[in-house]
Design a protein around this nucleic acid. Structure first.
Lengths: 110, 110
DNA sequence: GAAAAGTACTATGTATGGCCAAGTACCATA
DNA sequence: TATGGTACTTGGCCATACATAGTACTTTTC
């Protein structure tokens, strides 16, 4: 049991929310997302992001199209499906509730 | 893949933080914690709480003493060790960073 | 034009933690 | 002593994050 491990645990689920949110703002591919997540100091690595995208796609929340690139192999550009949009709304509420609950507990000095 | 499952994932690690925080405010036993968590709408069940307490104790973050009760079997009253206090400080920062990062991403309308 | 470097994506195995479910143990009351 | 409530324990299941290694394609460099 160490801090680093707990940080990983805390990220669980939240990552999914962040990624859906990023995609909701317009077509992006994996490296775009990595860049934004990193710049927000949300540590993510390839080995986490790609499987997650595949999972979300298989669940019907995302879809993608191949787009050729001028500097390397073609890229998958992702967009949200309607199902994905609904799911994001739900996640949004879940996250807000969770933050509120945590605040309630950690601000309580009794 | 459903909402409920993601809610579970989101709770991961955060629960640990909340429980350490509750214990940091004074001696409590499991049912006290359950009550406070529930009243803050942080859904927790016995099967989650007890193993977590055991884990934290084995990691040296908690210690407990048995106290007899007038209305049932004796109870384990938990307190934080010094190690536990330090760990809680670390978790506190981790949580704040995570909330900030998430805000950064979800407030970005680009 | 062949080798090297870079970009994008894939696949597999491991560890952790939340939860369900069943079970143990103790106490008080009827 | 039988019943119901309280407190805690245990074993197994599932989902996710991550490390690691690998595939495939493109551009650059000599």
């Amino acid at each position: 049991m160490n801090l680093e491990n707990t940080q990983v645990q805390m990220r669980k689920g939240i990552l999914e929310y962040c990624i859906l949110h990023i995609i909701s703002r317009g077509e992006v591919y994996a490296s775009d997302m990595l860049e934004e997540l990193t710049s927000a100091k949300m540590i993510v690595v390839e080995g986490t992001l790609y499987p997650l995208l595949t999972r979300l796609k298989n669940a019907g929340l995302l879809e993608y199209k191949w787009v050729e690139s001028k500097s390397g192999p073609p890229r998958k550009y992702y967009t949200l499906t309607n199902m994905g949009k609904n799911f994001l709304d739900g996640l949004s509420n879940t996250w807000k509730d969770l933050v509120l609950s945590t605040q309630k507990i950690t601000n309580n000095s009794k």
